[in-house]
Amino acid sequence: MKKIISLLLLLLLISPAYAGLAEMNAIQQRIDSIGTRILNFNKIPKRIIFTYSEETKAEWLGKYHELKSRQIIVYDELYQFTQTDDEIAAMLSREIATVLKSYSGMWGGSIDAIQVALSSKKFETVADKRAVDYMVKAGYNPLALIVFINKTYPQKRQDVIARHNLTSKRLARIYEYITYKYPEYLQDTEYINNQYYQNFLLNSLENRRKLEEKIKMHSTGEVHYE
C-alpha cells in the first residue's frame, strides 16, 4: 500500500512538470512549422531560427536578437495574443522581414542592422508590408496581420517624438497595401465574420475614408493617416 501511495505521489509531482514541458514543446513545434513554411514558400535562402520563450522581452539589453544572431524569439507576452496559425504567421513574417535586413549590405549586414535599429519607425512600415507579401506567398491570410496588430499594440497619443508609428497609422498602411496588391482578401468571408477584424474596420473608419478618397482621385501620393 505504501509503495502505491509513494508511486502516486511521485507521479503527481512529475506530471505537472512534464505537462509544462510538453506544452512548451507543442508551442515550439507550432512556431517552427509556421516559420519554416514562410521561409520555404518565399524561397528565402538564409538561416533564421525561431525560439519560444516564456520570459519577458528586455527593453534595451539583448533587445535585437533578430539582428544580432538571426534568431526570432517569440515571447510569451506576444504569443498569448495569437489564436490562429494566420496570426502566428503574421507575427513571424514581420520578424523575418527584419532579420533579412541584417543579411544585406556592408560588413555582413552590420550597417543595415544598425540602420534598422536606429530608424525603427521607418523600418516598421517596411516590415509590415513585407510581412503581407510573405504571408500571401505562404498561403496565409494577410488580414491576420491587421487582426494581430489591432489586438496587440496599444494606441499612443502621438508619434512625432517617438521611435514607433502610431498603431492606427500602421494598420491603415497595411490595409492600403492589401487593398492595392491583394484586394481579393478583403472579401474573405472568414474575416468578414471575425470580430477583431470588424473592430479594426470600426476604429479605422476615418483612415479608410481617406484611402477611398485616394482611390477615387487616382492619386499615388502618400495618405496622411491619423
Partner: peptide, 16 residues
C-alpha cells in the same frame, strides 16, 4: 513589390 522611401539621417530609399 515594395517601395521604401528615403528617410531622416541618410536612410536610403529602396525598390524591391
Amino acid at each position: 513589390e515594395t517601395i521604401v522611401t528615403s528617410g531622416m539621417n541618410g536612410f536610403p530609399a529602396e525598390i524591391i
